[in-house]
Design a protein around this nucleic acid. Structure first.
Lengths: 157, 157
DNA sequence: GTGCGTGCAAATAATTTGCACTTCA
DNA sequence: TGAAGTGCAAATTATTTGCACGCAC
């Protein structure tokens, strides 16, 4: 993996925790993870890392443009690889399921609106809160959506 | 003030703190406030209220549909009266200045996108991060937006 | 070698909650 | 009066930071 190069390019030493986190995001089929998710997954891999380090690494990656941070509901930050096309998200308020989409028309409207107000566009945050297709079970988890981890560990705290 | 009625309608007793908070939002020219903002303003008015009560009241008002809660940058929740037309926001990343707008085309696209994915629309969150017109004022000034604005605390250095 | 990075624990920041005391209906 | 509401302090939750030690370069 030329991943090590990504780190160097960002001016970051290629340390074990950083390599592991980067690799996790690349190999995992789950694109969106919280710091806690990353922590647990690496622990499960047998890596003895501290949660504080995970937070530090994630923040550094965000600043380096490697990851993107989102604030969907639930208070926790959710990270995803920032590769590929810019996109927004549909988030199921029940299951936490996330779908990505890209809509050029919305982007055009946003640019237009900003211009009309004399502002200079920096960025935008758009997430659609919705209910996933009621394919059957859905009513049962009354709790506000937690984003579903790789191993959907349903814990009550 | 028929405000008292609003509370009753929401099944809430018309207590002093609640009346004061409600009144504050109605009379203030500043539409967007944090719990801290509300707390300070009421304290300044000479009302001896606890911050915890402010949080409780704001949350109750949100659930009653009287207020709307936003999570712009800065970690703190920002509340605004939920009266009038549904709208989204442009937020200046420097000053924290907030501009409201409504764009039917974007709303249409959102409905369309959700439908295409088989989801049921609940809501959407859209805020545009931008730079206010550099008309000269920009340094250490938040025009009519807010005094010690919640969002003005981030970058504004 | 040495300075950046890390682990751990303690510190923060925003918001919530337990509890005894007020206040509204 | 009695339940709903409030103030205060302690508790939570998510994330950050100080420090002594360890690892990449």
């Amino acid at each position: 993996m030329a991943r090590e190069h990504d780190l160097k390019a960002a001016g970051l030493k290629a340390t074990l925790p950083r390599m592991k986190v980067l690799h996790l995001f690349h190999k995992s089929k789950v694109r969106h993870m919280t710091a806690e998710d990353v922590y647990r997954l690496l622990m499960d891999e047998g890596l003895d890392v501290g949660l504080a380090t995970i937070y530090r690494v994630l923040t550094q990656f965000e600043q380096a443009g490697i990851l993107k941070r989102h604030h969907f509901e639930g208070g926790k930050s959710i990270f995803e690889l920032s590769e590929g096309e810019r996109h927004d998200h549909i988030v199921c308020v029940n299951t936490g399921q996330i779908v990505e989409f890209h809509d050029p028309e919305i982007v055009r409207r946003i640019e237009s609106i900003v211009r009309e107000h004399g502002f200079e566009l920096v960025d935008h945050v758009l997430h659609i809160r919705a209910l996933a297709p009621t394919g059957g079970v859905e009513r049962g988890t009354a709790a506000p959506a937690r984003h579903t981890g790789p191993t959907a560990t349903r814990r009550a705290r």
